[in-house]
Amino acid sequence: MITTELVFVRHGEAQCNVDEVVGGPDTCTGLTDRGYAQVEAAADRLAAEHAAKPFTALYAGPRLRLRQTGEILSQALRLPLRTEPGLDGPIHGAADGKLWHEVKTAADGGPHAHPDTPWAEGSDTWSGYLRRASAFLRKLIDQYEGNRVLFAAHGETVIAAHTLLLPLPPGQPTGFAVDHASITRWQHHGNRLGQRRWILDRHNDTAHLIVRELGGET
């Protein structure tokens, strides 16, 4: 029996992704036209699912590309969007707005290469971010036990969920790719003996994008 369910939709393609710059809170300029189309495809898929088995809540972090993604989902599912600072991505400090290759060169590989070292002045460490994000997700899981929750998320938030629920030590390399507008689903299963465990039902599911592209809509 499935009890709690968490569904993560990574934001669509953003302009900072195209420009290959660090899109922190000060410099994120939102989704591209392609990004909007990607999220609309995910929203159409989830709206059909929502009609059969409704989501209880929809959350997004405060960064512009997340709020835009959340708004598309909110309109399609007719579900209020809740913006929560605890779901924002890593703090980039002085790296905000800089080219990623410059940041990675200066930090000898970037956030993942040295998980316990800041990658710029005033930035998080990768391990520190994962601990903070995982702790917030745990609070939401406890709050919404027995419910279905949908997230407009950063790829880093998806990795934080994996770190929490697999579980993995913060900072350990995971190798998980998280594509734009992909769907990742965690389910909490219980059996007749009262035993419960988290199961990763799907990761980085982009079937809806393939269908949209085959139809010539992106």
Rank of each mutant, 00 (worst) to 15 (best):
A41G: 01
H162S: 13
A106C: 06
L140W: 13
D124P: 05
I72T: 03
G171L: 09
A160N: 06
I141S: 10
F136P: 07
V158F: 13
A153W: 03
E145D: 15
G70A: 05
L79I: 01
F55S: 05
A43D: 02
A107F: 04
H50R: 06
P62K: 06
P85C: 01
H154M: 11
E156F: 12
E40L: 01
K98R: 15
P118F: 05
A76D: 01
A43P: 02
K53M: 10
T157I: 15
E71N: 11
T83N: 00
G70C: 05
T117V: 15
Q68D: 01
I183F: 04
L64N: 04
A42V: 05
L66P: 01
V178H: 06
G128W: 13
L130K: 06
L64I: 12
G122L: 00
L79P: 00
H114Y: 04
A60P: 02
G155P: 13
R78K: 10
R148G: 04
L140H: 11
W126I: 10
P170D: 07
A153I: 02
P111K: 08
L77C: 03
H154G: 12
V158K: 03
T184C: 10
Q143L: 15
E145I: 05
T163D: 12
A113I: 02
L77A: 02
H114C: 02
E145V: 09
Q68R: 04
Y59K: 02
S74V: 05
A47D: 07
E156P: 06
L99Y: 12
P173E: 11
A43C: 06
L79W: 00
G70W: 00
W119N: 08
T184I: 09
L46C: 13
L73F: 02
D179F: 05
I183H: 03
R132L: 09
A43T: 02
F151V: 09
P118I: 04
P80R: 03
R185W: 07
W100M: 14
F151N: 04
G128R: 10
N147M: 13
K139N: 12
A57S: 13
G97S: 02
